[in-house]
Design a protein around this nucleic acid. Sequence first.
DNA 1: ATGTGC
Length: 379
Amino acid sequence: MGNSIQHLAEGVSLVASAKTWVEGKAIQQLQQTAKLIGMRQVVGMPDLHPGRGYPVGAAFFSVGRFYPALIGNDIGCGMSLWRTTLDRSKHPAEKLEKRLGNIDGPLDEDWRDSVAALDLAASGYEASLGTIGGGNHFAELQQLDEIYDSAALQALALDKRQLLLLVHSGSRGLGQEILRAHIERFNHAGLVDDSAEAAEYLAQHALALRFAQANRRLIALRMLERLRGEGAPVVDLDHNLLCRASMSGTSGWLHRKGATPADAGLVVIPGSRGDHSYLVEPVADEASLLSLAHGAGRKWMRGECKDRLSARHTVQQLSRTALGSRVVCHDKHLLYEEAPEAYKAIDSVIAALQEAGLVRLLARLKPVLTYKTCGEDCA
DNA sequence: ATGTGC
């Protein structure tokens, strides 16, 4: 097993193979972040790409203080995989799309008891619960495409006949407001261990994680109701979060920004909306800060997508993918920004993780129908 | 990313 964790500088490494495309700007951001006070170790995942000041697709370990800005605005954003009772052969994409209709708006009164049962603290963002949001968020019906470990899949009660549902969403406006208020008071200086301000942020962060997890659950339940099916969660993991951790015996803070925990059970690593997703068993390794890639990672900046693609593809063409799936995205700009070509190939990301000995593949999943947004269009 | 800005 070849080790493809590259050492870039003292405390800076990158999980990448020769085939992994990583932008220079993202590496620069990784190096800069490593210089923050108290930062001990930073690791870029193979899906590393530039963010606003700090890179996305990385884990950061600090001692003595932590940095809310590294977690970003979508605190608790994550990936939730559900098994469903929906028979894949009876549910072609067109039928799923029709039954789903428009799920952009807030949940109606019928959901009051289900929401109350989640026992969330008042946040002021209740209207966003059960909604997917924008950017790279999505909810996708998938089918099992290749099985590499049939015993593991059987143990999870997953089989090729049933559709799966993968939900990618976060804490919506709540996480955004928590970060905004934090930056207003402290800029990018971070918070010192055991300070009252640190405790305050950690309490808000905990609320945002709960909100985001509840949001993904409500999105899944809402979709299952529309599709007249039932389901249960198989995996639910955040990839934007802060936690206490111990590395080489030293206690500190582990920041994950677009990095999935490798020490909390099975992981789904999605490709773009026109690519496969993988269900993997992670290997928790301190060399990769107990983390994995959270997806394919952007290859193109959002702003350049429309110019690069509008000559090549119509909106109609982008609503169908190379894997035969449908994409519901009635926001034209977003459809271009989220086009498969704007992302790295998922196989290059998975290969780098495999070469580093960080994952064992259990199954490959294939998209059937992706829901992003209906805008004003759908019924 | 965003109960979305000029």
